[in-house]
Design a protein around this nucleic acid. Structure first.
Length: 198
DNA sequence: TCTAAGATGGCA
DNA sequence: GCCATCTTAGAA
């Protein structure tokens, strides 16, 4: 089975569901980043978390603000934010318009080291995009990629997983939260070295 | 205006 | 375990 050669683009309508439904379905899908020079980077999504309405850990829990605005918009756009003044995190906006909801992409698995990346021994390939901040570094994502429509020809888009690929997905609680830590809204591919060790 | 905390990651 | 680093949102 060649997962990388299957390129069925994810349409916004497929993302118009509650984030806890979309998040596990995104595990095994491919995140695609096209740089300004045309170079394309691809990584398989191996870890996700859902955030949604009535969720105390969601950035939009209290009210609509300039930062979380895109979460209230239509599905199929990016939501990028700065965390700890140091790293960016990438989310996929989900659900119906006006319902603040998104899926955080926490880890990607690459099949080869992107040529845009400084060397890096093969030993480290498995973990070059292990973590929401690290994957944004690899994909060269910053706030300029916030609120972008995910479609081919844009800087970012998603491709469905191969129809014959049935990932072994584990469901558990989210990471790094002080509120809403009890909700089992994190999913990851079992036995994948890029997944957070928690 | 002021300030505490944050969906992190690297290093000791 | 600790800290870099700075935006955001809630409090005052």
């Amino acid at each position: 089975m060649n997962i990388t050669k299957y390129t069925q683009i994810v349409e916004p309508s497929w993302l118009e569901r509650p984030s806890p439904q979309v998040a596990p379905d995104l595990v095994g899908c491919t995140m695609v980043r096209q740089l300004a020079d045309g170079q394309i980077l691809r990584g398989m999504i191996v870890e996700t978390e859902a955030y949604g309405p009535n969720d105390p850990a969601c950035h939009a829990y209290r009210r609509r603000t300039a930062r979380n605005e895109v979460m209230f918009g239509p599905a199929g756009r990016s939501y990028v934010y700065l965390i700890y003044g140091r790293y960016y995190c990438l989310n996929i906006v989900t659900d119906q318009e006006s319902v603040p909801s998104a899926v955080l992409i926490r880890a990607l698995q690459f099949e080869s080291v992107p040529s845009s990346i400084e060397l890096s021994p093969v030993l480290k390939l498995a973990r070059i995009a292990a973590g929401p901040g690290k994957l944004c570094q690899i994909l060269q994502i910053d706030l300029s990629l916030n609120a972008q429509v995910l479609q081919i020809g844009q800087p970012l888009w998603l491709e469905h997983r191969h129809p014959q690929f049935a990932p072994d997905i584990v469901q558990t609680t989210r990471i790094g939260l002080s509120q809403g830590a009890d909700l089992p809204w994190r999913w990851y591919l079992r036995n994948c070295p890029a997944v957070s060790k928690l």
